[in-house]
């Protein structure tokens, strides 16, 4: 059960989602990826995509307009 952080702060769509997809592809089921995001669109499309993959997702607003999206690969 590895946990990894992915820094997507300051990055615009579609970069955060592309990076998240690439990162998760190298991870095993049960692993957790925490994606740091401050793009308002990416805080919607990254969790949307992850949920549609059947992964568990949690969004934490860690600061004003800054989120950590926690994805558990299924």
């Amino acid at each position: 059960m590895a946990e990894r952080y992915l820094d997507c702060l300051g990055e615009a769509c579609p970069v955060p989602l592309v990076k998240t997809q690439n990162e998760l592809a190298t991870m095993a089921p049960g692993d957790v990826l925490v994606v740091g995001i401050d793009h308002t669109c990416a805080m919607k499309n990254v969790p949307d995509w992850a949920r549609s993959q059947g992964y568990n997702v949690d969004i934490d607003e860690v600061g004003e307009g800054e989120w950590e999206v926690v994805i558990e690969k299924a």
Partner: peptide, 15 residues
């Protein structure tokens, strides 16, 4: 776009 993507970083910035 891949030529313009900042390299992936797994370091959590110290905010």
């Amino acid at each position: 776009l891949k030529f313009f993507m900042p390299p992936a970083s797994n370091k959590r910035p110290n905010r």
